[in-house]
Structure formats: C-alpha cells, structure tokens
Amino acid sequence: MSHIERVPVETSASPTGTTNAYVIRDEKECLLIDPPAEAPTLTAAIASHSDTHIVVTHAHPDHIQGLTNYGPLEQTTVWGRQWHTDAIETATGISPERTYEIGSSLPVAGATVVSLPGHTLTHVGFAVGGTLISGDLARKHSSVAIRYSEGSIRSYLLTLRRLIANPPTRLAPGHGPPIDAVRARLRSLYMRRKKRESQILAQLDSDPQSIDELATAVYDRPLRGVHEEAVDTTRAHVGKLVREGKVMLSESKQMAWIPS
C-alpha cells in the first residue's frame, strides 16, 4: 500500500515562500517529486529506503533545486522526460539517468506520467490512484502564472478542459493545500482566463494599447511586486488571441490592436 506525503519546504525561489515536495513510499522504494531544496523530512525519507526515484513536474527553480542535494546520492535515480532532459541539466547540473514518456508508469506505486502543458510547455503531473500531483497547474486560493516566454494560455485552457471532463479525485498542487473539489476549482480557473481574454478584447476595441497598459487595465488589484509577471501573463493572453486572428501584436511584442 503506497502512502503520499506532502512536505512543504521553505525556499526563497518560490513566489509563495514554500513549495510542496511529495514523497510516495511503498515497501522498498520511494518516489520524491519536486524537491525544492534540502529538508530534514526529505532527507529522512530517502535515508529510510534502499532506492529513491526523483522526478519533477517542471524545471523551475522552486521545484527542482533540491536535485543538487539529492541527485548525486548513491541510492537515488533521477528521471527526466524523454527529449527534454536538458532543462533539468541546465537548471541543476544533474543529468537524468532514466527517462519517461507521457503515460509511462514509474517504479513506485504505479505512478503514471500525465501531460499538463500550460504553466510551461513541457509541464507534467504524476497520477497515483485518484490523486494527481499537479505542480503549477492550479492552486486552491489563487491562480498560477502563464508567462509568454515559456508557457501557453491555449495549452493551459486545453489542459483545464481535459481535466474538467475527467477530473481526478484530488489535486496535490505545488503550492498550498490539496484541492478536493477538483472540477469546480478547475472550472473557476478556466472561466477566470476566459474573462481575462474578454477584458483584453474590450480594452482593444477602441484603440491600440501597450501590453503594460492592458495589464494595468485588466488586473483588478494593484500590481505592486507582481507587475512583470502580470505583464508577461497578459502578453501570453494576447499571444493566444493573435494565433486566433483576433488581435495583432507588434514586432517588438509591446503593442496590440484589433485588426480592421
């Protein structure tokens, strides 16, 4: 019988101050997901098993930096997504020893790799029974950033729609508490993104605007401390609308307008 343990780890790399690592145990082996930094609980979990497998949902620093501590240990095996292991090596200097594909089953607890693009284009999750360890797919009380530079609003919305149609029993996110009302939460996040899209189109209905102006107009709170993230997420929304032919974007990616 496998056991899933959520381990919040403090890290300065996290936008929330902590990132959830997850430890899944069976009789002999251990699966460590998203180690953000060295932590006593994670160290103890690895020490108590003869073999530990390490995977990450995506290669952002607040989900991966613990690889520099745990990856070199003799009893650990670092895994990466086939054809995308370079992101892990670039971020940590650790080269994955084994690879998985979408749909692969990992050696511990039958954990299955699930594609969750959006926050990043190669973002994955790990399904164990009815629980989906979901990285930066969703948070219980706030939204996640979808940056133009590395993510995709279109992919994110498609991921949300797929999971709304067939939701897991529980989401185990990278930040904050677990999410049990999965379909309702994912639907709320989907509608929030669609509302933001409508707001952008309404703002552009009369005159061209800069991405900075759009971000200031459509966010319903002061952007102090998150201005850069808000602008890049707004640019990601505009990028989706450009792909759909609803908006034009200047070569500099700074100005947007509705084509006549």
Rank of each mutant, 00 (worst) to 15 (best):
E244Q: 12
Q82N: 10
E229P: 00
L121N: 03
Y148L: 10
A127F: 11
A47C: 04
S104G: 01
E29R: 14
V231I: 15
I200N: 00
T112N: 06
V238K: 02
R187K: 09
T16M: 11
V78Q: 02
S210T: 15
T57S: 08
A181T: 05
S2F: 13
V55W: 08
R6M: 14
D212W: 15
E101G: 05
Y70R: 05
S155Y: 14
Q199H: 14
T120M: 03
S152C: 06
L42M: 07
S142E: 15
P40R: 10
I64M: 05
H175Y: 12
M255T: 12
H49C: 06
V7Y: 09
T233H: 15
A59R: 01
R185C: 02
D62K: 00
H84G: 01
L160M: 08
E97I: 07
E251I: 08
A145Y: 15
V55A: 03
H63L: 10
V128C: 04
S252Y: 10
A172R: 03
R196L: 14
A45S: 05
S198M: 13
P178E: 15
L31C: 03
G239I: 11
V114K: 07
V56Q: 02
S104A: 08
S142L: 08
E97Q: 13
D51R: 08
P208R: 04
T68D: 00
A59F: 10
I258Y: 02
E38K: 08
Y100A: 03
T159L: 04
N166Q: 10
I211M: 12
Y156A: 07
S2N: 08
G110W: 14
T216M: 09
L160F: 13
E38H: 12
E97D: 08
L189Q: 06
R154D: 10
K140F: 14
D205V: 05
K240F: 15
V144W: 02
D86E: 12
P259A: 01
L189F: 08
D26F: 08
T216D: 15
N166M: 11
